[in-house]
Design a protein around this nucleic acid. Sequence first.
RNA 1: GGCGACGUGGCCAAGUGGUAAGGCAGAGGUCUGCAAAACCUUUAUCAUCGGUUCGAAUCCGAUCGUCGCCUCCA
Length: 463
Amino acid sequence: MALKIYNTLTRQKELFKPIKPGQVTMYVCGPTVYDKAHVGHAMSALVFDIIRRYLEYKGYQVKHVSNYTDVDDKIIQKALVEGVEPLKIAEKYIREFDQHLKDLNVLTADAYPRATEEVDHIIESIAKLEEKSYAYAGEGDVYYRVNKFEGYGKLSGRKVEDMQAGSRIAVDSQKEHPMDFVLWKAAKPGEPFWESPWGKGRPGWHIECSVMCLNHLGERIDIHGGGNDLVFPHHENEIAQSEALTGKRFAKYWVHNGMMQLSGTKMSKSLGVLVTVDTFLAEHEPDVLRMMLLNSSYRGPLTFNEETTQHAQNALERLRSALRPARPQGDGVRDGGLQDQADTTYQKFIEAMDDDFNTAGALGHLFDLVRAINQARDQGVDAATLAVGQDLLRELTAVLGLTLEREEKGAGEVAPFVDLLLEIRSELRNQKLWALSDKIRDQLLELDVVLEDSPQGTTWRWK
RNA sequence: GGCGACGUGGCCAAGUGGUAAGGCAGAGGUCUGCAAAACCUUUAUCAUCGGUUCGAAUCCGAUCGUCGCCUCCA
């Protein structure tokens, strides 16, 4: 079976063939750290986490790098307002984001480079671009000469002429052409700066990614990812820079995730329309967000609201229902067709995921397995038989990054006491003392312990 | 104005030529002392119009609508 990935560059699904067999290099654009992260940022991280997990599941060795933009206008502005060093601001939000990634069960990347740590390399690269006359300086700034790069616009499908027509681009007097973009920004008084051949200044936004990519992953990479709002100009400019520098095709597959929508528009920091990761995690478990993504296409927009969140929570519970143990004193019925269903599920899961990470389709197949497992349990199969389905479910949900089995708060210590209560309640029920036995059930529920009676006995679980 | 994505049941959503997966919600039922859970049954002709075809949600064209990018943005 072969994996296909939608490539923004060619606008079609392509057979995935990494540059080096068995190995994948993946660079994902991370956030500019000037404020708290919102669930849209988390979405991007989660999408590429799922992609990475699946690639690894398929046996690829993945080298994953994701950056932080830790110097730019907004960070400087925020620092000014708060009266602290810009780097402190960046540091604070990087730490927060790191913690979010951990909380969201995102696998740790091989490197998290920061712009400010690579300034030497950035300067070298700009100088090299200048040498090759892809760049020119003007009053302390350095610009990229867009018309010098032939393929400019190939990723976003625009033509330089068309964009000129749109009058939204402010014409900068230093620029030879309105579409030229800044590689190096001269420092204004009070701004952080680094010494360079063009004077004191700092890197422009686009160059850092080209340079960090080059440094950490090489001249050519397999997958370059980010939100689809980065296609233009950011990724277009990265291509222009990197390919001008190396003379080689930069990224083989450009992968972009859709935007998180809130009340009909893109969730965005600048618009102030957002739900922060903190807010979300205060009310929901991390898997809920992941579940929302899994139930839709990573490339399309994703509506975020109370309803879609609740749906995701409920769907998660449904997956978990399959992992409940076999009935106590099950009569040991064998099979129940679980093995067949497991085989089918596995095959269809792979098929769906191979089709440009069709997680919604893959989930659908997992739910078929869930039903089969629950059916088998109802039929009274023994634990070993049930495990055939459950083990596969655990394996495949793990590929998606879901952690179905939660750390139960002190379950070990509590269990004997709950079991004792169940024993007493069982005796009460035998004597038909319903009021008392219901009281035990109700009060345990208040402590988040759910009792479930069945003809074979009573089981309990955490709510 | 330019470029792009999309429009499937109450909601989310899969499905790219042969008469519509799955989840959530709803209804009915099985089980149960009751409840919960689970299980069973049940709810669509795919934005609109036209075309191609023996046959289209699936291909082509037009229309309407939604969203993104074109300025910082995951």
